[in-house]
Design a protein around this nucleic acid. Structure first.
Length: 424
RNA sequence: GGAGAGGUGGCUGAGCGGCCGAAAGCGGCGGUCUUGAAAACCGUUGAGGGUUGAUUCCCUCCCAGGGUUCGAAUCCCUGCCUCUCCGCCA
């Protein structure tokens, strides 16, 4: 959620910034609502004030043993009036909240204009694209041997967009997760967490998935309302919901491995082959909670932490700065890391690292106590995949294949593979 | 799943339906004392919002949502959560 004070101070600026991401903000509707809100709020509070002072004098009169009946007669109709005003106020506040919750974050000034991924900017490239003296296979064909990667079985057990991994490939995925967790904990200073994979609506509202993106989620239960997490970002960031953090405890750097569940509504027909887009996948997520002044730097660092995993695995990748139109709803600035997939002859997203600034923090009421003011102020939140394990598995398979369709284990993973050097 | 107890400020913990945004203690902050520290003593210390020229005035918040009442932290209902005992269980 954006700062309501920003709307009152400079509506044109807000509208202009939102238009950069093709969001048409109805400022007329907003202004009308805001004017009414102000009006009704003042009216309601006046009535409340009157009720309070009259009730107080009734109490005092009663204490002195005076006849309070005349006073009671005076207040008779106040209750109804007040109730009406309060209902009107809560009604307009609900409308206001609904409007505000549907407005995306304002893009950072360093974010380029643009409408779609076509307009994203390549920041850098790393690694050498492997040259094969044979026609490289994609991960589906590579995984088909001995049914190590079995999509038919996934479909039988659950349905489309599910997979079963067997033997060495299941282990390889686990090895990747271990490498990622160990690196982030031991070398990057993150604290490992384990969190619920089912979350309530408040948590999803806090990080911005609700109310707008319910269709992307799997709802696991109606009563109580619980959803499967689309990313560990949700439970991990919600650790600081309604918390005032002491300045000395910042930054908070958390890493969490979790399965992720996405309905992929709206993605019909896209990436139907293979493990690129599944309803369930494993991911190691990095989350940082920082002082506002530190978030730009933290964003660069967090992205580098994700990049280091790719470097350790010697996987070629490029770093993209998303344009305003392609940046996610809650984010003010996002870098995507795209890994090279020989089977697709293309770079594909493997990590997305975002600075949300105070957008999530405002919804979460996640604050820190600023020693300079002594007051609680909103923190900045950031997160990024470090990395998506399923897609990393694909990248390793396709980049480390040989002419026989075998997969050579990258050096960095050898300690986790129990002596196995080649799969095949 | 069954039975009971309870949810109050950073923490512990009082609180007759009006004088309670809330005692007291701890913690935090500031000060006195001290070469310094500790102890002791004194003072101070919740959050959100509206409004204003203003550090003015006002509103809301004692788990959440309803209700009773002129008036609710206090009474009633529902939900959620925590604890204890029993059962079951990875």
């Amino acid at each position: 959620m954006l700062d309501p004070r920003l709307f009152r101070a400079d509506l044109d600026y807000v509208k202009k910034q939102l238009s950069r991401r093709s969001f048409d903000f109805d400022s007329e509707y907003y202004s009308g609502l805001e004017a009414r809100r102000k009006d009704i709020q003042v009216k309601t509070q006046d009535l409340q004030n009157e009720r309070n002072s009259r009730s107080k004098s009734i109490g005092q009169a009663k204490a002195k043993g005076e006849d309070i009946q005349p006073l009671l007669d005076q207040v008779q109709h106040m209750a109804d009036q007040l109730k009406d005003a309060e209902m009107e106020l809560s009604d307009i506040q609900a409308k206001m909240t609904a409007l505000m919750e549907g407005i995306p974050n304002i893009p950072d000034e360093t974010v380029p204009d643009g409408r779609s991924e076509e307009d994203n900017i390549e920041i850098s490239r790393w690694g050498e694209i492997p040259v094969f003296d044979f026609e490289p296979k994609d991960h589906v064909d590579l995984g088909a041997q001995q049914k190590r990667m079995d999509f038919e079985l996934g479909a039988k057990i659950a349905g489309a967009r599910f997979v079963v991994l067997n033997g060495a490939l299941a282990r390889l995925q686990r090895a990747l997760i271990q490498l990622m967790l160990n690196t982030h904990v031991s070398e990057h200073g993150y604290s490992e967490t384990y969190v619920p994979f089912l979350v309530n609506a408040d948590s999803l509202r806090g990080t911005g998935q609700l109310p707008k993106f319910e269709a992307d989620l799997f709802k696991a239960s109606d009563d109580p309302a619980l959803y499967l997490i689309p990313t560990a970002e949700v439970p991990v960031t919600n650790i600081v919901r309604d918390v005032i953090i002491e300045a000395k405890n910042l930054p908070l750097k958390l890493v969490c491995h979790s399965p992720c569940f996405r309905s992929e509504a709206g993605a019909y027909g896209r990436d139907v082959r293979g493990m690129i887009r599944q309803h369930q996948f494993e991911k190691v997520e990095l989350v940082q909670i920082v002082k506002p002044e530190d978030s730009a730097k933290a964003h660069e660092e967090l992205t580098q932490h994700a990049e280091i995993i790719l470097k350790k695995l010697n996987l070629p990748y490029r770093k993209m700065l998303l344009c305003a139109g392609d940046t996610g709803f809650s984010s003010s600035k996002t870098y995507d890391l795209e890994v090279w997939l020989p089977g697709q002859d293309a770079y594909r997203e493997i990590s997305s690292c975002s600075n949300f600034k105070d957008f999530q923090a405002r919804r979460l009421q996640a604050r820190w106590r600023n020693p300079e003011t002594g007051k609680p102020e909103l923190v900045h939140t950031l997160n990024g995949s470090g990395l998506a394990a399923g897609r990393t598995l694909i990248a390793v398979m396709e980049n480390y294949q040989d002419a026989q369709g075998r997969i050579h284990i990258p050096d960095a993973l050898l300690p986790y593979m129990g002596g196995m050097e080649v799969i095949g």
